[in-house]
Amino acid sequence: MLDTSELSAAVERFADRLRSAPQSRLQRGAAAEGLALARELALLAQRIEGLEGESGGRVMPDAGVFAVADQLLVAGTDLAEALRTAPAGPRERELGEAVRLVRESAARSGV
């Protein structure tokens, strides 16, 4: 089984930073950055699980600046589980890409 602890830790750190960010920082782009990442992670999980379908997958809705940390945590947890339980095949590349996406998004967010 694939060890996804690095991904989970990176997602949790970013979500915690979003939760503790002031409203003004969230509104200046940190929440949008977090939501974009949550959407990307959710779509990646859907692709791994074969749930994306013809429409390209379900897009996570914008639930507001105060919900984005929870949305990110849910998407990251879903992706980690999808990677852990995926059928046989190399998933290290997707895991590494997901960790990179989280770190880059956190850096861009300014939180």
Score class of each variant (00 low, 15 high):
residue 66 F to T: 14
residue 7 L to Y: 02
residue 44 L to F: 04
residue 63 A to F: 09
residue 59 V to S: 08
residue 108 R to I: 10
residue 88 A to L: 14
residue 4 T to G: 06
residue 10 A to M: 00
residue 20 S to T: 13
residue 42 A to Q: 01
residue 54 E to S: 15
residue 103 R to C: 06
residue 37 L to S: 02
residue 100 R to H: 13
residue 111 V to C: 07
residue 16 D to K: 09
residue 3 D to P: 08
residue 103 R to H: 07
residue 59 V to W: 07
residue 22 P to Q: 09
residue 10 A to W: 01
residue 46 Q to L: 03
residue 67 A to N: 13
residue 6 E to G: 14
residue 18 L to S: 02
residue 4 T to I: 03
residue 97 E to I: 09
residue 104 E to R: 15
residue 17 R to S: 15
residue 10 A to D: 11
residue 33 E to M: 03
residue 25 R to S: 11
residue 75 A to Y: 04
residue 12 E to D: 11
residue 47 R to I: 07
residue 109 S to T: 02
residue 86 A to L: 02
residue 93 R to E: 15
residue 56 G to D: 06
residue 18 L to K: 07
residue 72 L to R: 00
residue 94 E to S: 15
residue 108 R to W: 07
residue 91 R to T: 13
residue 99 V to K: 05
residue 105 S to L: 05
residue 11 V to W: 03
residue 102 V to Y: 00
residue 79 L to N: 00
residue 74 V to C: 05
residue 66 F to E: 15
residue 32 A to M: 10
residue 84 R to W: 08
residue 43 L to T: 09
residue 4 T to H: 03
residue 111 V to L: 05
residue 23 Q to A: 10
residue 40 E to F: 06
residue 2 L to K: 14
residue 22 P to H: 04
residue 78 D to V: 11
residue 67 A to V: 06
residue 48 I to H: 08
residue 13 R to Q: 10
residue 62 D to V: 01
residue 32 A to K: 15
residue 11 V to G: 02
residue 49 E to Y: 02
residue 38 A to I: 07
residue 47 R to H: 11
residue 71 Q to A: 07
residue 52 E to W: 09
residue 39 R to Q: 14
residue 87 P to N: 09
residue 81 E to W: 03
residue 50 G to K: 09
residue 29 G to V: 06
residue 63 A to M: 11
residue 109 S to R: 10
residue 49 E to H: 04
residue 37 L to N: 03
residue 29 G to I: 07
residue 37 L to F: 01
residue 28 R to T: 11
residue 39 R to Y: 08
residue 35 L to H: 15
residue 108 R to E: 13
residue 6 E to N: 04
residue 46 Q to T: 05
residue 89 G to M: 07
residue 101 L to W: 12
residue 58 R to L: 14
residue 8 S to P: 04
residue 62 D to S: 04
residue 91 R to F: 06
residue 77 T to P: 02
residue 95 L to H: 10
residue 25 R to A: 12
residue 27 Q to P: 03
residue 81 E to P: 01
residue 109 S to M: 04
residue 87 P to Q: 09
residue 82 A to K: 03
residue 1 M to S: 15
residue 77 T to M: 01
residue 109 S to H: 08
residue 40 E to H: 08
residue 50 G to D: 04
residue 67 A to H: 14
residue 4 T to R: 01
residue 87 P to L: 11
residue 79 L to V: 00
residue 27 Q to V: 04
residue 80 A to M: 04
residue 88 A to H: 13
residue 14 F to N: 00
residue 49 E to D: 14
residue 97 E to K: 14
residue 92 E to W: 05
residue 83 L to E: 00
residue 101 L to I: 05
residue 26 L to T: 09
residue 29 G to A: 12
residue 89 G to Y: 01
residue 53 G to I: 12
residue 58 R to H: 11
residue 34 G to L: 02
residue 2 L to P: 14
residue 60 M to Y: 13
residue 42 A to I: 01
residue 33 E to V: 09
residue 34 G to Q: 02
residue 68 V to E: 12
residue 85 T to W: 01
residue 62 D to K: 05
residue 40 E to R: 15
residue 12 E to Y: 01
residue 22 P to G: 14
residue 77 T to R: 11
residue 30 A to V: 02
residue 28 R to Q: 14
residue 107 A to T: 15
residue 98 A to K: 03
residue 69 A to Q: 04
residue 97 E to M: 06
residue 56 G to E: 10
residue 78 D to S: 08
residue 103 R to S: 12
residue 17 R to V: 11
residue 38 A to G: 11
residue 78 D to C: 01
residue 24 S to E: 12
residue 39 R to S: 07
residue 2 L to V: 11
